[in-house]
Each structure stands twice: as structure tokens, then as C-alpha cells.
Amino acid sequence: MNGINIKNNKKNANKSDILRNIRIKKVKEKIIKNLLFGFGMVSVLITVAIFITLFSESVLFFQHIPILDFLTGTKWTPLFKPQHFGVLPLISGTFLIVIFSSIISIPIGLLSAIYLSEYAHKKVRKIVKPVIEVLAGIPSIVYGYFALNTITPFIRKIFPEASIYNALSASIAVGVMTIPMVLSLSEDSMKAVPNSLREGAYALGLTKLEVVYGVVIPAAFSGIVASFILAISRAIGETMIVALAAGSTPKLTLNPLESIQTMTGFIVQISQGDVVQGSIEAQSLFAVAMLLFVITLSMNLLSRYIVNRFKEDY
């Protein structure tokens, strides 16, 4: 009898030990889960806070300037009398930068991605890719300085009528800066296309070029588009290069040789200047920032739509 009791006690002790262990584990799991949730929420809260600031300050601005005048006006002179708050010149400035930088970054980035992913020898790829990615690590102020001191004089040799500050010079620098984004992302998505698909196409007697544009690029399409959109968003948001090299004269023009101002360039100008807090000029900064936010957001939504619409799953 006694012996059996001792045995049972031992068994119970073991059992409660195991139970306690499980309980401790569960508490730990809960703590970790809540901790992770907390960190996740921080970034959400920051985004919300930024949006609220932008929104509330913009509302104050739009109490003075009708939103329609802001969006359709062709004169932007917040710092002179008479003040005009038509944002189109800033949009056209940003637009110029986006167009001309994309003309550089998208073809060069995509074509070199195709080369590296499909044609280059392994050894070449191992050296070239990191070297190009270094371009992404150069601070944009360096690019801005480079644009002003190297690209601009060169442009003015070819086009003597170009201003010292001009959109083209800044665009070239922004374009070069965004090449690695297009390249890296497109190359990754092409490399991710399973080799079995390439083999399937080769086995049908397709040439290398046919395999690349018929199978690899369509299969990697969503990643490629994402890389374009990322480069464009970066060009829209790029600030240092355009503030340095593109000038600060808001102008409704499509001539890249002229001095312009972008939305971001204007924000820099206002932030640095001696503009009175709470004045309408200061509030205009938030309206422009709000517009920038909306444009970038729509770019993201657009890219998501395109990616879902055209993606080929594998």
C-alpha cells in the first residue's frame, strides 16, 4: 500500500511540474506577442500622427486659399507680394524631374538587370552587382554637388542657353541615383523565376532572347513594375539634389534646361527661411506636403493594382 502511494505521489509531482512548465511557457508567449504588437503599433501610430499634422495644418491653409485655386493656379509666389498659391508650377517641376530621371534609370536599370540575371557569367555578376549597389549608398548631397559642379557645366557646353540651375542636371543625378533600385529589384525578381520555366521554354526550341522576353520578364513582371514605381516615388520625394541643382524658381514649364522648383524643393526653402510660424506661407508648406503624400500614396496604390492585374504566379 505504502509503496503504491509513494509512486502515485511521484507521478503527481511530475505531472504538476509539467503543467507549471507549460503555464510559464504560455505566459512567455503572451508577453512576446504583446511586445511585438506594441512595436508594430509604433510605426502605425507615427504614420497616423504625421497624417493628422499634415491634414490639420492643410485645413488651416485651405481656409484662406480655396482648394481649387491651389490645385489649378499657375503662379506660385508665396514669398512675394502679390502672393499666389497655385501649385501647378511645383507639380510641373517635380514632373520634369520624374520624367527625365526615369528616362535614365528605367532603361539602364532594367537592361543591366536582364544582363546580370540572364546573360552575365556568375563571376561577373558577383562583382558588378555590389558595385552598382554602392551607387545607392552614396548620400544624395554628394549627387547634388556632383550635378551642380560636373553635370551642369557639361550641359551648358552642349546647350549654352541652359541656366546654371536646371531641371536636366538634377534629373540626370536623380536618375543615376535610382538605377540601383530598378536594377536590384528587377534582377532579384528575375532571378526568382524558377529555372524549370526557362528549361521548359528552351526545350521548345526557343532562343535565349525569346526565353528572356517571353518567359522570364512576364513571370518577373510584378517585381519589375514595383522597381519602376519605387524609382519614380524616390524621384518624386528626392530633395537634396533638386534643392541644390534644379534651382528655386517655380515655373510652369516643360523645358528641362530652365531653372525650376519641385514640391520638395519648396519645402526645403520654407523650412530654412525666416518664415513666421503660423503664417499662411508656413501653412502652405503643409498643403504641399499633403499633396506630395497623396501623390506618393496613389503611386503605391497604382503599383499594387498593376502588380495584381498583370502578375503571373509561380
Binding site: 524549370s196 520555366l197 521548359g200 521554354a201 526545350a203 526550341g205
Partner: peptide, 16 residues
């Protein structure tokens, strides 16, 4: 390869 076709170990239809 047009004359000598091939079928692979893992089915590899194109994503089309």
C-alpha cells in the same frame, strides 16, 4: 529541340 521535345521531372507549365 523542335525535333527532340522534352518533359521534365516537375510539371513546369508557364504561368499563362
Amino acid at each position: 529541340r523542335k525535333k527532340v521535345g522534352m518533359v521534365f521531372q516537375k510539371p513546369n507549365p508557364f504561368p499563362k
